[in-house]
Design a protein around this nucleic acid. Sequence first.
DNA 1: ACAAATATATAACATTTGTTATATATTTAA
DNA 2: TTAAATATATAACAAATGTTATATATTTGT
Lengths: 231, 231
Amino acid sequence: MRDFFSQFDFQSDLLFEDLTESENQAVENTMESLAIKKGSMLFYEGGIPTGIYQIKQGKAKKFKRGFTGDEQIFYIYTPQDVLGYHALLGQERYQDSCEALEDLKVNFIAKEDFLRLLREIPALQQKLIKNIGHEFGVLANIIAVLAQKNQNARLALFLLLLENRFNRNSPTVKGIDLTRDDLANLIGTSQESLGRSLKQFKEQGCIETDKRNIYIKDSLQLEQLLQVKID
Amino acid sequence: MRDFFSQFDFQSDLLFEDLTESENQAVENTMESLAIKKGSMLFYEGGIPTGIYQIKQGKAKKFKRGFTGDEQIFYIYTPQDVLGYHALLGQERYQDSCEALEDLKVNFIAKEDFLRLLREIPALQQKLIKNIGHEFGVLANIIAVLAQKNQNARLALFLLLLENRFNRNSPTVKGIDLTRDDLANLIGTSQESLGRSLKQFKEQGCIETDKRNIYIKDSLQLEQLLQVKID
DNA sequence: ACAAATATATAACATTTGTTATATATTTAA
DNA sequence: TTAAATATATAACAAATGTTATATATTTGT
């Protein structure tokens, strides 16, 4: 199970794991806690990187506008995830945008501090590079899904992924709380067409909804749609 | 134009550009020339990296198998492109597979030699990291296209991209020479459905075919399908 | 608490894409 | 060179998805 989901998870929440006590202290010392309002941008495409973020509370979407301007979400970040390091490492501008889906609490590390940490903690640099390689594989997997799976299968997959990601570190299942618009932009369809698939899933008893929240009721049925056994 | 295409090009052919004479010599000295037969693998998913490759002649496809085993091509490499460094940098196994589409001539740099070059030539390391960031953006752009564009638009885009990439460094236009199967696995459709789109394009005068080769006859019409002006 | 704005649900119809089947062309190996 | 294997082309029908329209629910700002 963990293994199946990890094909689609950036796992950037593990970046600061496995540090020694003193290394960890050095990292903590550079962090500045920020509150970010729902709907505002952590960074955007074309902007100049100023540092990296670790989400401590809330969710954020990473997206890119295709050449015709349509928003394509390719990742939803949740607490503990670290983001914003690609552009910073490459000394270039952001390739994508990141927006708070709810009020966030984040820890910010300024560019120079983070680069210094990387120099001083070789294990961190190694882990970061490893992680970037992993993320590359995740995007390739997402490409395979979008290119090969039909809408119901894509929806089933993302519901399973998001449920797992959203409720990983929380004792109570809160369901999947995204706007229909965001969910549609994640699985690559229109809002209306997404609604049709959700209705089918409800009729089959796979899911239930309350307001915009989606609760998975029969994950086995969803997995069967993917023709894969998650264990 | 260059700018539009570069959104979808890895640009790994530029990796060894801008080196000093002596740096360049150091790189050349570590390279070993290899001949690889059509259909054989440069590396495959799960394998342990042994080094990196620069293609000197021929084309290769990079692909991944989705969890149901279907092949999804996400890049076609052409001469001068460098590949295979992700897994090597991250000290992990290959995340994807690479197969020769025709008989290849490649230059191989063994893992330890390449890692040494990176240590000794900071500009190379910097460029590599920058390039990995760029590739991340390319995959995100491909995700947007696959998720948002219909089949004809996807086909039009990839025909323009491939024509540009295949004939970039060659004086004579040779058209696009890929099996229907590979082209279908690149744009995310079935071979039969791809055939239908190709037929439409032929009827509209956008393209002509000879054997499996595809020649672009009216790129303006293809660009209009994308609702974008390439200039 | 209320009105306005925004988000969601649903249906009907059009269009696109998938699938199955069959025929023809091209390449490969003996 | 020829037979077998593989690749390509095409059509007909089924299924999935896009689009437009309208109604209802929920959220936001005052």
